[in-house]
Each structure stands twice: as C-alpha cells, then as structure tokens.
Design a protein around this nucleic acid. Structure first.
Length: 477
RNA sequence: UCCAGCGUAGCUCAGUGGUAGAGCGGUCGGCUGUUAACCGAUUGGUCGUAGGUUCGAAUCCUACCGCUGGAGCCA
C-alpha cells in the first residue's frame, strides 16, 4: 500500500507537537523557542494589552503563567474564559518579567479545548474540604486534593520500593474470600443469587451451596492468612491491596473500602516484626519528604502547622516500646482523668492510646504482649500462658496505624486457640497444614495505607485521602 | 449503632418571634506586568424536608433526611 498511515484526526487544540508538563516547564534551565502546554485554567487576570492566564495540569502544585496578548485572533473569547476551562497553548517559554515565577509562556496560539460556565463549582478562593468532598469528581483540580493524590501515588510507590529493596515478594491475595476468619468485623457478602427468589434450604434460608462459588463468599477483610502461606514458601512477602469492612463505623479514621499493606516474614519473631514496622514508617516519611517537598509545604501551611516538626521528630528518634501490662500501670499511675476504666485485661481505649502517644511519650509507641483474651486466635501464645505476642503501633493524632503479631506456629496450641474461639477446624485445614508441614516461627502486621497517608499529610479525615471514598451510607461516584 | 452540634445566596457565614443580610464568586464598567490584583456598580434565596404552635416562624416544638465532631469496632 502507500506506506503512509492516515493522519490522526485531532480535535481542535490537539496537535502533534508533544506537550511539556507544567512541572517540566517550570524546572527548565533555559528558554524554549517552541513549547506546547495543556491544562486547566485556574484563574485569569486582564492587563491593558494582554491577559494573564494561570494554568495547572496536575503535574505539580504550581501553576504556569500564560501571557495572552490582545493580538491573538481569539482574544475576545479568551477574555470570556473562566476558571475551569481547558486550554492548549503554543508559544515560547521566557523568563518572567513579573515577580513570583521565574518562567512564563508567551502564547502564539491558545486553543480553548473545553469551556466551563459560571456553574463551575471551584472558585479561585479557598473551599472547605467538606464542600469539596461533595464534588469528588472535581476536587482533584483543587490545590489541596491535587497534593493529596500526588502524595498518595508517591506513598504507594515508596511502599513497593521499601519492600522490593529488602527482598520481599509482592503477593496478590484474593479479594473474594471464603474465610470469614478472625471475626474481624462485618463482611460484605459476595453472591449472584437473587435474595428474594434464590434457592432455599429446608429451613427457608438461602442455599449458598448453589451460589456461584458453591459456598458463602465475602470481600476480604485481610490477606494475612493467605500471606502466611506464601511467607512459608518465599520467606518474606507483602500484600498491598484493597480491603473491605462492612462495619457501621462513622469516624474520620474508618472507611468501608481501604488499602492495607501486610508484610509477613518466616523465621521472624516479634522483635523483628517491631523493627520492620518502625523502619517502614520512618522510610515512608523520609521518602515523601524528599520527593514531594512542595506538597508537604502546602500541608504544613494550610492543614497542620506542626506537621513537619512532628514528622522530623518521628524520623529522628527510636519509637517507644512498652508491654501492655507496663502501659496499663503507667496509665493507672498517670493521675489523668479518663472516661473509661483502665485495668489489666481491658482493651486500651482511644483516650488511653492518645495519652500514651500524645501526652506521655509524645512520639510513636509500640505496645506489645497483650492478654490473649482480647486478641485473635492466630497470635502466638507467650511462655507466661497469659499473653500473646501482639503489637499495636500508635502514632500521635491518628492512634493505631499498625496492628500485628508473631503467629502461632505450634499446631496443638493453635488448634486449642481455635477451639476456644469456637471455630470449626475443618474450615481452616489449609491454614493448619502450614503448621503440619515444615512449620516456622513467623510474624507480620497490617499497616493502614490511608492512615499512613493521613499521618504524613496531616489531613484529618480519611475521606479526604481516598479518591472516591466509601463509607456507610455513601457510595456516590 | 450511641452521644453532641450544625443545615440561610454558587462558597463562607451573620440574623434567636415582626420587611432576607454581608464578604467572596458570577456579570457589567474602570484601572492595571498582574500574583487569592485593585476600584465602582450589579446579580443572586422553596432559610434541609414535612407537620405543628403563633396574629406573625429562618428563629419555638415534633419527626425525618443530610453533614460534622466524639465514642465503640479496627487499619
């Protein structure tokens, strides 16, 4: 044939000149004769013979200033253009004559790709996070949420980097699961059966043996049990994926769908587990501080003035470690007024955790060795016969960010635990096999991805660090 | 799910029993290498919904809905 592919049909404003991001343009070390930039108008100001357009493309926090001279053929249309419009600009990158930016683009051609009328909800002035939450599809165009979601991306990358650098294998554990294990809150049922017309058993209940998977299935609440299987083969593994809890919990720290990181290490006892959790938290802070300086500066300025000092403090010092019974003693002797009682055998309440991490130690605290009665079946029984090798890592402002344990590797002890928790051992045959064949001491923990992101950005509500948050009564978008 | 608070213009909020308000935004005009520009004018409302009390309700009462904060569960 002719050997020539037909020219691409490009919409107005789309050209074949490859475009430069705002980030790259602003970081340029020299003027550029011919440049193309594309993005959304943040604000526009008229001068006598030209118009200043501030354009943002999400590549960074900062805007690029475009100079639109009144000699442009569509100048009248440009002057009618409002915040939110999308544009494609060709021109030259030159040193700015004004203050506040080093570079600006003097436009030869500005195509208005898409207009935005005056119903566009984002104004150039500040909005509350609560309002922006109602327009979750537009809020990434705001400074705050652009920053949050760039940091979210970097944090996810840093997590993989941390584990890959240390020889951990990334394992994809199932999202649809058959184990309603550990009674970790309410589960979302997965079914294809019609709840009204589905097949029934004799007692009138729905017969899930005739369901898609021929059994009850749920969205996962944790990949831990499956991760243990892989740790007992590949030695060091981690999962990083979505998790679902149908708890009717309505707080700034809970979501129905969230992401969790769950490392699991064979031949590892509780101390190694604590070391890894501490190293991970510090690594993530350092990484984001280094790679997202503009974003961190915005959070420090508009979200939390103490943020950078607190993060530096966390990175610089060893985390406090205290066993549960010492923590209880400390709380009892504190003289502080608590709403809830504190005593050995009771769960630490939020106010107690807060006192430990915010008032007493004023830094992250790892509490370990909890009474077995208040912890799940899979945690390893300590020699005292009363406590299990569990850890909770508490951080100021958030509370629990990591929960983990050494796992019970002795099959007889594990089976006894399961019976005490009134579990059906037959349902966990595969899990018990891990102890039956070549069992090893192993440990792991869960790190809440969003809680870590909240801690690093200072953003106080989990709904504001998730692109489209799912919470009880709310699954819009 | 429990406790508390809040729903008034596109946004942020004032108005607590007697004519529905301000700032910002939008629009128009002016000025200007501007920086959340500035100056002037103007636009803008089912006061969350439904009922009730009252001569009269944004305001008082009841229910419901939504949001926010706190608690529990946890990550």
């Amino acid at each position: 044939m002719g050997g020539q592919s037909p020219p691409l049909q490009l919409k107005p404003g789309m050209t074949q000149l490859s475009s430069t991001t705002v980030k790259d343009a602003l970081e340029s070390t020299a003027p550029i004769d011919a440049i193309q930039v594309q993005g959304w108008v943040r604000t526009r100001r008229d001068s006598k013979d030209f118009s200043f357009i501030e354009m943002n493309d999400g590549s960074c926090l900062r805007n690029l200033q475009i100079i639109a001279r009144n000699s442009l053929p569509n100048y009248a249309a440009l002057q009618r253009m409002t915040t939110g419009a999308s544009i494609s600009v060709r021109g030259t990158l030159v040193p700015s004559q004004g203050k506040g930016q080093t570079w600006e683009v003097v436009a030869d051609k500005i195509d208005i790709v898409g207009t935005a009328d005056d119903s566009y909800p984002l104004q150039k002035k500040g909005h509350t996070p609560e309002f922006l939450r109602e327009i979750a599809h537009l809020r990434p165009r705001s400074n705050l949420f652009g920053c949050v979601f760039r940091v979210r991306s970097r944090l996810a990358f840093a997590i993989h980097k941390f584990f890959q650098e240390r020889g951990f294998v990334y394992v994809h554990t199932p999202i649809i699961t058959g184990s309603d294990c550990e009674g970790a809150g309410e589960l979302f049922r997965v079914t294809t059966l019609d709840p009204k017309a589905g097949p029934r058993r004799l007692d009138g209940s729905i017969d899930y043996e005739q369901d898609f998977f021929a059994r009850c299935t749920y969205l996962t609440v944790s990949g831990q049990l499956e991760a243990e299987a892989f740790a007992c083969a590949l030695s060091k593994v981690y999962t990083f994926g979505p998790t679902f809890r149908a708890e009717n919990s309505n707080t700034s720290r809970h979501a129905s769908e969230f992401w969790m990181i769950e490392p699991e290490m064979a031949f590892c006892a509780l101390n190694g587990n604590m070391d890894l959790a501490e190293e991970l938290v510090k690594y993530l802070i350092v990484d984001v501080r280094e790679h997202c300086p503009d974003e961190m500066e915005l959070f420090a300025k508009f979200v939390d003035k103490e943020l950078l000092a607190r993060l530096d403090f966390v990175v610089d010092r060893p985390f406090q470690r205290i066993n549960y019974s010492d923590a209880v003693d400390l709380l009892k002797r504190s003289g502080a007024k608590f709403e809830f009682p504190i005593d050995y055998g009771l769960n630490l309440q939020s106010e107690h955790e807060r006192w430990l991490t915010e008032k007493h130690f004023q830094c992250p605290v790892t509490v370990f060795n909890f009474p077995k009665e208040i912890k799940p079946f899979y945690m390893r029984l300590n020699d005292d016969g009363k406590t299990v090798a569990a850890i909770d890592l508490l951080v100021p402002g958030i509370g629990e960010i990591v929960g983990g344990s050494q796992r019970e590797e002795r099959i007889d002890v594990l089976e006894e635990n399961m019976r005490r928790h009134k579990m059906d051992l037959a349902d966990y045959k595969w899990y018990l096999d891990l102890r039956r064949y070549g069992t090893v001491p192993h440990s792991g923990f869960g790190l809440g991805f969003e809680r870590m992101l909240m801690f690093i950005t200072g953003v106080p509500n989990i709904r504001d660090v998730i692109p489209f948050a799912r919470t009880p009564g709310s699954a819009e978008f």
